[in-house]
Amino acid sequence: MQKRLLAAARQLADATANMVDAAKGCASSPNDSEQQKRLRGASEDLRAATNIAASNALKKKLIRRLENAARRTASATTQLINASKNANKSNTNKTSEHQLTQQCQVLSAATVVAKHTSALCNACRLASSKTSNPVAKRHFVQSAKDVANSTANLVKAIKVLDQDFTEENRQRCAEAAKPLTDAVDELTTFASSPEFASMPAKISPEARKAQEPIVSAGKAMIDGACHMVTAAKQLAVNPKDPPIYQLYSNHSKSVSEAIKRLVSSIKDCAPGQRECDESIDKLNRSIRDLDQASLAAISQSLQQRTEKSLRGFQEQMIGSAREIHDLCSKVKDSAKAESENLGHRVTMMASYFGPLSDGAVGAALLIQNSKQQTHILDLTKTVAESALQFMYSCKEG
């Protein structure tokens, strides 16, 4: 999402720059048809870039319209069955007219029942797959079976009633509906228990505050681009009008500033940025500790430590290096496509560099050869510096 927003922002910035150049050219040569054509083309490019920047909002509106259309289609299907009642207007037999009306009502009700019981069975299967409680899982599966079987029996009774619309068949149809009603009531009672009650999604004040820079910058960018396109149209009609050109320049400047704010906000608010900064600070501290130990090794002023043996420090280094190696691919994947995991993984990775540098310094203190001391410290520093560059790359995305 972050990369798509940045790409849209860059495209809008390029379109804005092209529009400014075209407007300047049209202002300097107002009678040049090529300049006017270039201005119109730049205006269309800016409009297209604005639409791309707002595509997410447009997609949401389109989805809502499709959902509403689907609801209207389902409603119209039911109304179509009910509309068959109008056939009784041309029917002179009152007895058959009354029977036809009742049959239409039964078929309409059957359509509604079948539609909703199907959705209810699907919801039971979904709830069964989501819950970790084995008792609840079995209860949802059994409820789906009860609703499905009751619906099937009701449909059979309705078919019989449709073929022979008698009082006896109507009574059987009513009796077949009662098990379905009982199964639905039992499922409703079970699903309404506190264990399965859903909680409405809420955005915390902190989340709203974090969203505000991106939302306000994006809104300012789109509003400014719309005003800019309007001014460009007026400028194309009357390129010699200085006030319109000044208005266009003001809107162009506001769009450029909004784009800069949007790009900056996206980078600052991206997941894992704070954790990356903290990890970078930890790595810098480890590098400084290794530098100081290297200088002490060169001057042969390293003080020996006795809390561990040389083998103990080596095992500490090996264990930390192995954990860092295993986390490298996970951090890379998080930086590329799993930004929600980036903060946690870079924090874990940085936490192993303290023990790694401490083990290197401790091992160097117990090695008598100064060249070997410098060598082990330099190798550890190279690993830390490589990880530091890796952290910067992850932070930039």
Score class of each variant (00 low, 15 high):
Arg40Ile: 13
Asp14Gly: 09
Lys159Asp: 14
Lys253Phe: 00
Pro134Met: 05
Ala9Trp: 00
Gln372Val: 11
Ser256Arg: 05
Ala127Val: 05
Val113Gly: 04
Leu247Ala: 13
Phe190Trp: 01
Gln314Cys: 09
Asn93Ile: 08
Asn169Phe: 03
Asn88Trp: 08
Gln372Pro: 04
Lys59Pro: 03
Asp32Met: 04
Val383Trp: 06
Ala136Gly: 04
Lys145Arg: 14
Ala296Thr: 10
Asn149His: 09
Val361Asp: 04
Leu310Glu: 04
Lys115Cys: 11
Met228Phe: 10
Ser252Asp: 02
Gln316Asn: 09
His116Tyr: 10
Leu262Asn: 01
Leu377Pro: 08
Leu235Phe: 15
Asn122Ser: 15
Ser55Tyr: 00
Ser351Ile: 06
Arg125Trp: 08
Gly218Lys: 01
Lys233Glu: 15
Ile324Glu: 04
Ala177Gly: 03
Gly224Asn: 00
Ser84His: 13
Ala148Ser: 11
Leu327Met: 00
Ala42Thr: 10
Asp162Asn: 11
Lys94Cys: 15
Leu46Glu: 07
Thr77Pro: 10
Phe390Gln: 05
Cys124Asp: 04
Thr166Leu: 09
Arg138Gln: 12
Met317Glu: 06
Pro355Gln: 03
Ala22Asp: 08
Ala231Gln: 10
Gln163Tyr: 11
Arg38Ser: 14
Leu120Arg: 07
Asp289Ile: 13
Gly362Ala: 02
Ser357His: 07
Ser75Phe: 13
Val135Pro: 00
Cys276Glu: 02
Gln389Asp: 06
Asp333His: 06
Thr374His: 13
Ser279Met: 01
Ala236Met: 09
Leu161Cys: 06
